[in-house]
Design a protein around this nucleic acid. Structure first.
Lengths: 328, 328
DNA sequence: CTCCTTTATGGAACCGGTTCCATTTTTAGA
DNA sequence: TCTAAAAATGGAACCGGTTCCATAAAGGAG
């Protein structure tokens, strides 16, 4: 419990520097090595990580800053990151900012002060303040979810994912389509995903494409989808996330639409629950496992100063569901 | 960035011990205090937390061991714990064991070695190995979710919650009720919750009470609920979790039952998604916020060696839903 | 069996704080 | 104004490791 390197050294009859060398894989004669091994094992000795970090300047910590812990996407990626980093001897320090941009910036600075070896940021929006902070950072930083100039990023191919979904819906015979999206401050989802959906629809026979803005939450989705149903004659609602799609389903049902007969609905995200409900939701499932392990490997490379591409894109796949029926 | 207490001391013209005292609230004359404050602020100085921990034996870390990060219940409680601990200057070290009992035990030991100030365990099952480990621990430990002898625990009142639900369903006029539960290795959910449901049903007019065992996952829920529908004439299915209830809904619908007209279904957990779907799910919502902050306050007290009750129970409330209709 | 080169080992300084103790400065009581 | 007690400060040891450097032991060539 409280045994130190000094006691190990004394008991093994060697200098503490020798024990330190033994622990860190330095050159040791087989004889001494064996002596030390015995004592270490007898006491179940583990070096004090604080003393170790103090001198070596390496903490073995990787900070992960996320806007929420109860988000499907975040938790899936996080789990994988944590798993892989643990396997290579790092400890993930998870910081939850509860969607506060200020706490996000503050957390990055704190992590830098705490001297973590690297940090990963789950970004929803990149503000000028972010960019300024990024440029001052002396510790490797990896951003997930949004693109930023001169910064290492892992971002889903939102344009392509949107395009596939637009194509899928339009090809199913829908000519009048509404997209329930989010604010364009979120470049990835608010801009690129939307543009992809729009292009995919237009390129595959859709005549009308209407846009309604929602937040990421259920209630604002209900409002936005309600507005869409009142103002358009769309036969399909493409929603920017699965949660928004659930809101759309709710309001559609309340207004008497049958899904998918009267109205097709789709989402993005591939949440587990989307296949558990009825009708199951057609959606785009991003490859979260791949994302997580890519992130872990990337930050490790960055720490070792190995070269890494600034932009990396994990894959995705379209997951069909009962919420859409071919019309042809 | 790399400024140390020595440089601060030199620049302020005092001894480093004085700076240390200033930082930790010791007695300092207003004059010196002001001098030091200036220099500290000019450099944006932050003491090295490793050096600090090394000598003071306090790390400011609290380890939290959880079987999963993508669980609704865990994440809700975790967020609150993290928030409260952060406010009082602690850092939560979140460890995910991916449901492995071995990794759970191992993690507790690692945390002890890492010299965290306290630890919190989200338990699903207390094995003899757990009890043995608990007794060897020299660091405050708080268990959430299960009861253990001579250990500080925060546990939902599963019996009472079960009783309320049983009463609610039976009182609605259901005489033949099935309970889709989980294995009794999980004392809280597998034993107490089940017994509560049973007693609640029996005490309020139910004639038949059948039990079917499921796992916590969607697919085994489908199997168990399917079996129940095939083998009984139950008009209500009480499920041990909301996820299980979703499985029951799926299989019921496939077999042509209308919910709630032909079959009432309820869950436990109060997941967010349960009120987003149709029909919305009647469920028991435990007070997760309360649980989280209770846990944070409790572990802090334990660290300060203040007395705390061994067993504490956060509240819950029954949340009605469209999945149940009064029959009378 | 020397002498020189490697390889092992020990000793000491150092990392950046905290804390105990001795010394100096203030404050206050007489 | 002098003195004792309280408050403030400085100095040094210490926390538990890592690492540099010097020395000792071992290995190899001649």
């Amino acid at each position: 419990m409280k045994v130190t390197i000094n006691e190990i050294a004394k008991e093994a009859g060697v200098a503490k520097s020798t024990v330190s060398r033994y622990l860190n894989g330095g050159r040791i004669s087989p004889r001494t090595s064996e002596k030390i091994r015995r004592v270490v094992e007898a006491h179940n000795y583990e070096p004090n990580s604080f003393a170790r970090s103090l001198k070596s300047k390496k903490t073995g910590f990787i900070g992960v800053v996320a806007p929420a812990l109860d988000s499907f996407v975040t938790s899936k990626i996080l789990i994988k990151i944590d798993e892989e980093l643990r396997a290579t001897g790092f400890t993930t320090l998870i910081i939850n900012t509860s969607h506060s941009i200020d706490r996000e910036l503050e957390s990055l600075q704190n992590l830098q002060r705490q001297k973590v070896d690297g940090m990963i940021l789950f970004a929803t929006e990149i503000t000028p303040a972010h960019l300024e902070l990024f440029s001052e950072l002396t510790i490797p930083l990896l951003v997930i979810g949004q693109e930023a100039k001169r910064t290492h990023c892992i971002v889903f191919d939102d344009y392509q994912a949107g395009y596939e979904m637009g194509k899928y819906i339009a090809s199913a015979g829908h000519a009048d389509i509404s997209y329930i999206g989010v604010h364009e401050a979120d470049e990835a989802v608010g801009q690129r995903r939307k543009q992809g959906v729009k292009d995919g629809c237009k390129d595959h026979g859709a005549e009308t494409f209407s846009f309604f803005e929602s937040g990421f939450d259920f209630n604002s989705a209900i409002a936005a989808a309600g507005k869409s149903l009142a103002e358009t004659a769309s036969t399909a609602l493409i929603c920017a996330t699965d949660t928004i799609a659930l809101g759309a389903m709710r309001v559609a049902r309340e207004k008497g639409y049958r899904i998918p007969e009267d109205l097709a609905i789709s989402g993005f995200g591939g949440y587990t629950v989307s296949e558990m409900i009825h009708p199951s939701l057609a959606t785009i499932a991003f490859n979260y496992q791949e994302t997580g392990s890519l992130a872990a490997r990337t930050i490790e490379k960055m720490i070792q100063s190995e070269p890494v591409d600034f932009l990396q894109r994990p894959g995705f796949s379209l997951r069909p569901g009962e919420s859409i029926k071919g019309k042809k």
